[in-house]
Nucleic acid binder design. Structure first.
Lengths: 162, 162
DNA sequence: CATACTATTCACGAATTTGTGAAACTTATG
DNA sequence: CATAAGTTTCACAAATTCGTGAATAGTATG
């Protein structure tokens, strides 16, 4: 069967790639991810090296250096991207992590802890013996459950793929 | 040990409850949840009945009926809340679902399917044999993995609590 | 330590999102 | 079927987020 894939000899279809970048980035931003960070992240995903310089990102996405700076800071903070300093050059490279999906979930962990803490305050304000307090405590236990189970799930993924 | 919990005989500390509602709603909205929907949702959580009329929500949150209308529509759409019509009255009641956390994750399922579809297009645009195409396909498999595993995880939660 | 190149910060304007009041629409009851 | 209670829609205003250009700060090399 002949594929619809691009002819490697002619290089890839950058227009189709750009379409994909915008589309997948939009998917992400609809899930609550900052828009520019999503675009930068997907741009990194579609490079063979899995890494770019800020200038390359700014050029391929047609955005300012400032926008790239903010986006990579966010991506590094949430653990999806690492910064690399090349010894022979003064420009940084930004690389998607090999274990990015593992990291993405590990990060959630801290969020759950914080939510559990907030929920404990809620239970205390309502009274643990009330129906509302009990519901809130169940919610807290749910996040506790996720915090225990998600790492196991990621281990399973690693065992299967990583 | 004496608790800091409110004296049930005096009713609960509505000020403390309101503080909790705003705080937990903020936690949610930071995770990409619409702000007003988060406030309405948490308001429902802290009622003993687990349900409110639109008027009660508007009053306790100090917002317009229109804002409540938009928020409950969103919450119903994502499966966290159900609408109830009381036969003896003409006002609706909005209720948090018992299995709300199960539903919250079931909803994710469709999102993952959609993402997998987008990713397949990306793999095709890049060529499956390229490094970038291969990375994208691994990402697709990750979502496929989650789609298979999360229902199992929710079953485990149900077995333990639900 | 001067220079050239890269990255970040900041104030501003643009665009999007969010919430409101008023009007229109629904639905149950007399 | 008229009325009143409740809900939704819609245009607009307020608030927030987002991206830019210009200025500032940082860093490797000669």
């Amino acid at each position: 069967m002949s594929e619809t894939a691009p002819n490697p000899a002619q290089g890839r279809d950058e227009q189709a790639v750009a379409r994909f970048v915008e589309r997948f980035a939009l998917d992400f931003s609809e899930a609550g991810f900052p828009r520019m960070a999503a675009r930068v992240f997907v741009r990194l995903l579609v490079t063979d090296e899995g890494a770019c310089t800020a200038a390359e990102l700014a050029d391929s996405l047609q955005v300012s250096a400032a926008a790239v700076s903010g986006a990579v800071r966010y991506l590094i903070q949430v653990g999806l991207v690492v910064r690399e300093r090349e010894p022979g050059s003064r420009r940084d490279r930004y690389r998607v992590r090999d274990d990015m999906w593992y990291e993405a979930f590990a990060q959630r962990d801290e969020q759950f802890l914080s939510w559990e803490s907030t929920l404990r305050e809620g239970v205390s304000a309502l009274g643990a013996e009330t129906a509302a307090g009990s519901r809130l405590d169940e919610t807290r236990r749910f996040f506790e459950f996720l915090r225990a189970e998600l790492p196991k799930l990621m281990d399973k993924w690693r065992a299967q793929e990583g």
